[in-house]
Design a protein around this nucleic acid. Structure first.
Lengths: 329, 329
DNA sequence: CTGAAAGCGCTAACAC
DNA sequence: GTGTTAGCGCTTTCAG
């Protein structure tokens, strides 16, 4: 593997000059530039990035922490973040935390070890006190998830509106015995969404049945599990607000196996508007999240944070959600 | 940000000794080790990885090239690769090629720039001649996809068997007018699978109808598009071998909208056995790929390649596929 | 415009 | 066991 010295020698120039052409520095005569380029080509030279990183004290890599890559929501979110990153000459490092505190902390350390220039968190596992400690090592931007205590920019969806809108719709359709599925950790996002649910219920003079609050609802399997729980209840909900299309899909699939009719026996409303929502039968009423917009906006903020030393931003960007009415409720 | 020198100074020792405790080197007295640890804690010291990488000439990072992250098959594959990597103290860098030659090449360059120690390719966009050029910069392992010309280890599924098995099943069920959906690039994988399809057809004395070969079939939308194409045909296939569960889901969803009955009017067989296969109606007959096994095996080979300079391996690992019979055919 | 020289932060011979 | 020293490959003042 040739180094910058080899190139310099072959071109009969100094390493400094070679470095200048590598970095597109001005003030290099065209003639010398050409001969450097030629030498680089001949040797098949490519700069060693570890050396560049060490010297420049930056990597042009942004870590993106996601809790679960097999959840389409995060897969799409990552894609939009990546697209914007590429536009700005940045590379992303996808870090799968698996909803695990330790893993999250491990990845946050990348900021301290200078493996990455910044971190985007799409979920939060540790308490903010813990996370705050790394805050001084480089920029952090929150995307989708957030913490009330966080003192870093965050781009998020109006989850309160989402919870409210979905519940309100169920109510309007005449359902009053409404169950609620969620992940189980009272994060900013989860809190807001539940608050919206609560508000809509209250406005209709309805109280919340604690038995119908289902935790650990993440994927299709969880949906199936919840439907089984419901089947065993003497007093059952007749409508379900789920935290994700996948959970909704699991519930619907299992309900149909049990011979129940959707939405007559039990109505279901999803969240995300993933491809699966249109493929399942009955098609899923759901709440569409503008995934692309939050990903793009997040990276935009990161880029600014990275370039303008004292870039000040609105701390919070909140994007609206949209109700997509189909047949499941 | 404190450096190793700061730690050495505070502990009243040399940088070498500090380095030794960082790297868990033996031959450091417990007393000094303790005082180094104490100094590190006090300063909140964390080694700079750019410096380590430069000095050690390795990063402990493996690039994993995938064509599309939003395809669940690859999301799960990445998870299994990552799990095995973590076991071995390796970090993976997920590279989304988007089925794009240039992007693939860009990522392969990471091997030359020493950003990564090795590369795992789960799809191949460029011709092998092009890829071979980087082969000398570090280990490459092929996973899932492969090229006949490739001279690097590859872990793959027996796609021929998959194509044969699926088609044979359709035939056994009495369907003879069988269409075939695929991505459109005749890679090793695609070739084998099609070969299996062809073989089964031939064995039944059936010839292949060119009009029923559908290209660019990757996701749900493509499935819908294909179903529309079929609807417009005067002579229609009555069974479809699809390249993925997502395509199958799109086909089924659209067929139902058109009032067609599955599998009576048109039978469908998927590929992958993704969660969606069990949720769609009718449930999808499909071919299960042992995603976990190929991911794990791939990383195992990579680890060996990295440690044993002259590790020789079977060049090809071929794992079997499994037919999962449900209701769609 | 170009080169010399210093050094980013760390590790690994080598000496003691 | 521990310290000294010489770089890993590159960029960036500072002179000229």
């Amino acid at each position: 593997m040739p180094t910058i010295s080899d190139v310099a020698r072959l071109a009969g120039l100094s390493r400094a000059t070679v470095s200048r052409v590598i970095n597109d520095h001005p003030y290099v005569s065209d003639a010398k530039k050409e001969s450097v380029l030629k030498a680089m080509r001949e040797l098949g030279y490519i700069p060693n990035s570890a050396a560049q990183n060490l010297r420049k004290q930056k990597t042009n890599i942004i870590a993106v922490l996601v809790p679960k890559l097999t959840n389409p929501f995060f897969a799409y979110l990552v894609e939009s973040i990546e697209a914007k990153a590429a536009e700005n000459g940045l590379q992303i490092l996808i870090c799968n935390t698996k909803y695990d505190k330790k893993r999250e902390l491990e990845f946050l350390k990348y900021l301290k070890t200078k493996q990455v220039d910044g971190v985007i968190m799409t979920s939060i596992e540790n308490s903010w006190e813990v996370i705050e400690a790394v805050t001084w090592s480089g920029p952090i931007v929150l995307c989708n998830e957030y913490s009330i205590k966080a003192n870093v920019p965050s781009v998020r969806l109006n989850q309160m509106q989402g919870g409210y809108m979905g519940t309100k719709f169920l109510l309007k359709q005449g359902y009053t015995k409404i169950g609620y599925c969620w992940g189980g950790i009272l994060s900013g996002l989860a809190h807001d969404r539940f608050f919206g649910f609560e508000k809509a219920m209250k406005e209709s003079g309805l109280s919340i049945n604690k038995n119908w609050l289902f935790e650990n609802a993440f994927d299709i399997e969880d949906g199936r599990r919840i439907m089984h729980q419901i089947a065993r209840m003497t007093e059952k909900p007749n409508a379900l607000f789920t935290g994700s299309d996948e959970v909704a899909a699991g519930i619907i699939s299992e309900a149909k196996k049990m011979g129940l009719k959707i939405p007559d026996d039990i109505a279901v409303i999803g969240f995300d508007d993933q491809p699966i929502a249109e493929v399942i039968e009955p098609a899923l009423t759901t709440i569409r999240q503008p995934i692309n917009d939050i990903g793009t906006k997040t990276m935009e903020i990161m880029v600014n944070l990275l370039s303008n030393e004292h870039y000040t931003t609105e701390k919070v960007y909140e994007l609206p959600l949209e109700l997509i009415v189909r047949e499941s409720s």
